[in-house]
């Protein structure tokens, strides 16, 4: 896959100028994974921001309920042209979720430290990228809210009452 064309297909980079693309392509690599492969684990140090080019990725979180129920739970599914691993853009943070490939997957990995440096050097680019990343996070939050609301609404629907006869004939 061509790195240049792959970069231009990423929605968070779509308003950047040619020179800015070139600087980002210098810190990016194309990575391929098989179905079932883990791209990164939860709590590992966030190194890269990933843009999905092909495949499907499940973002999972470890669930610990009183050390009895230890299970990883999927909290999001990413499909192209989704972006994930945005913790890498923050200062030395661990990933909040783990990423597992559900299909053969191609991602574009952008070095988080390098991207932070570029954003510090070029405030215009930094402002643009931060705005786009906030949109990514906000859309995730919005979907989670929708799910929460829908589930609450469904559980709040009362059971149909059995018809009772108001007046009985004697």
């Amino acid at each position: 896959m061509q790195l240049g064309s792959a970069l231009k297909s990423i929605t968070i980079l779509e308003e950047l100028k040619e020179a800015q693309f070139d600087r980002i392509s210098a810190i990016s690599t194309v990575e391929e994974y098989g179905a079932g492969d883990t791209i990164f684990s939860e709590s590992s140090l966030a190194k890269n921001l990933y843009a999905l080019q092909k495949g499907k990725v499940a973002l999972q979180m470890q669930l610990n309920v009183a050390n009895m129920l230890r299970r990883r739970v999927t909290v999001d599914l990413v499909t192209p042209p989704g972006v994930f691993g945005w913790s890498a853009v923050m200062e030395s943070r661990p990933y909040m979720l783990g990423a597992v490939c559900l299909e053969p997957t191609v991602v574009l990995a952008i070095d988080g430290g390098g991207l932070r440096s570029l954003m510090m050097q070029d405030y215009e680019m930094g402002y643009l990228l931060m705005g786009k990343l906030i949109k990514v996070v906000a859309s995730r939050l919005e979907e989670a809210r929708q799910l929460l609301i829908c589930e609450r609404m469904i559980t709040a629907i009362p059971e149909p009452e059995t018809p009772t006869r108001a007046f009985s004939r004697k």
């Binding site: 999972q60 599914l77 559900l102 929708q146 589930e151 469904i154």
Partner: peptide
Amino acid sequence: FGLDDVPLSRMSGLDTAT
């Protein structure tokens, strides 16, 4: 249950398998 227009409601395949 799967909810229309809420993709997050249909993502338990991997969790079920594991």
